[in-house]
Amino acid sequence: MNIFRLAGDMTHLASVLVLLLKIHTIKSCAGVSLKTQELYVIVFATRYLDIFTSFVSIYNSLMKLIFLGSSFSIVWYMRYHKAVHRTYDREQDTFRHWFLMLPCILLALLIHEKFTFFEVMWTFSLYLEAVAILPQLVLLQRTRNIDNLTGQYIFLLGGYRGFYILNWIYRYFTEPHYVHWITWISGLVQTLLYADFFYYYFLSWKNNKKLQLPA
């Protein structure tokens, strides 16, 4: 474990906490895409299939449980908690899951490191995570009304991806045989998707203004 990986995991954890804070205490999920959250449930459920069969560290297992549990509870809140559900922008959040999932399934079947069930599911989760933020970014574009917590949530999520890239560069130079093109390319694509958002986030921060995306 290097400092970049730890920073990445902590930013990821912080992003989830910010979102749970918004949902749990303010009882609002305005501006949050249920589609993206459901895709994250699928991402973590397919990636952490090995949670009971392969043990890396207590840290890893604990974090897997946290990410699984938090993503499930966020979706539960948005779907079934009356007060929270009322604030959901259902009409604006129209992205189709299958539109993103189908290409990822096909790609995972075609391009993977090993053709085993676990490995293909793992690879699918990498591809899907790369694009899972898209419904959220589309929703932001549509509502344009971004509150601080939603902005911070997406900022932290993008930060997590940025730190993981630094982690891969660090590992590449310090560990022999550490070459994982599939992880790197899908991770890079994922981080690039945040570039536009980051640009406007920094602009609003620099000018001390409320975050607003252009139409």
């Binding site: 990986r5 995991d9 990821h12 090995d50 890893n60 490191e113 090993k114 045989h177 992880t183």
Partner: peptide, 10 residues
């Protein structure tokens, strides 16, 4: 061994 160490990430 190569694909083992990719799975130690989250």
């Amino acid at each position: 061994e190569e694909s083992e160490n990719a799975h130690d990430e989250l």
